[in-house]
């Protein structure tokens, strides 16, 4: 990683909610042109980290800079240069995809013609051409997710934050989105990818960061992680590091035995 340019620098990041420490002294750098898988069990602090990076959450300790801008002071400059696809398919359902994307594009000060041209092209690639002017309240989860993906990238951001981006997509769409992410990487984009689907993270990521109980417990390429762990799959490594592999065995046995009991 010596020749890589850091685009995100996190130093001694601490976040406390009430008296619970959610992020405990996180130190990380994310590099340009890389896909980084940022994974961890529920409640590990993934979403909190992402929200701090994209300027959605204040009140944290430590220093965080994105593209050379301080998250505390220059959140607006950062927001102009990043894209975010949230985990929950939150969008204005009574709008059509075109109306929604026109709105989002305008918030990035894009001109209407560019937004419309890009929107129609991107939506067509994702198979939504026929429904560009239909209201989204009748859309399936997969269709909404596609609109969210386009909304997160329509302004051509330098860094893209993806939180479970494949949620609800069918198998073909998953393959297509994975290809798109790979091409975006080739085009020099930085992608921070958070997901529970280990197989995708394993195949897609140049680097994987595992977080557990607010701390980074592993950081490296998949090959490096494998060398340091006793498992050959990311799922196994993840399970070992987050301390659940033996417990999972016990719990699964208990589950079956409860079902068979009277």
């Amino acid at each position: 990683m010596e020749n890589l340019t850091p685009v995100i620098t996190i130093k001694n990041l601490v976040k406390v909610y009430d008296s619970t420490v959610v992020l405990n002294d996180i130190n990380l750098e994310f590099y340009a042109g890389q896909i980084t898988g940022y994974i961890g069990p529920n409640g590990a602090g993934k979403s909190t980290t992402l929200k701090i990076l994209i300027g959605m959450l204040e009140g944290f300790g430590g220093d965080v800079s994105v593209l050379g801008f301080d998250v505390r002071k220059d959140a607006m400059e950062i927001k102009k240069r990043i894209g975010y696809v949230p985990e929950n398919a939150m969008l204005y359902e009574v709008l059509t995809p075109m109306e929604y994307l026109l709105f989002i594009g305008r918030l990035y000060q894009m001109d209407d013609l560019t937004i419309q041209k890009r929107a129609i092209e991107l939506l067509s690639i994702l198979g939504l051409k026929e429904v560009v002017n239909k209201r989204m309240n009748t859309f399936s989860k997969g269709m909404r997710q596609k609109v969210l993906l386009v909304a997160g990238m329509i302004h051509n951001p330098e860094i893209i934050f993806l939180d479970e981006p494949l949620s609800g997509l069918d198998a073909n769409a998953v393959i297509l989105v994975k290809e798109i992410l790979a091409k975006l990487k080739e085009a020099g984009k930085t992608i921070i990818y958070s997901s529970h689907i280990m197989e995708v993270v394993e195949k897609l990521s140049d680097r994987i960061v595992i977080i557990n109980k607010g701390q980074v417990v592993a950081d490296g390429t998949f090959t490096e992680l494998k060398e340091n762990a006793s498992s050959l799959s990311l799922e196994g490594i993840f399970s070992n590091l987050t301390g659940n592999s033996e417990e999972d065995q016990t719990l699964s046995n208990e589950f079956v035995s409860v079902l068979s009991s009277n």
Partner: peptide, 10 residues
């Protein structure tokens, strides 16, 4: 919904 859509934008 507003918050999640608008806060990450500039």
């Amino acid at each position: 919904t507003d918050n999640i859509i608008l806060i990450p934008r500039p």
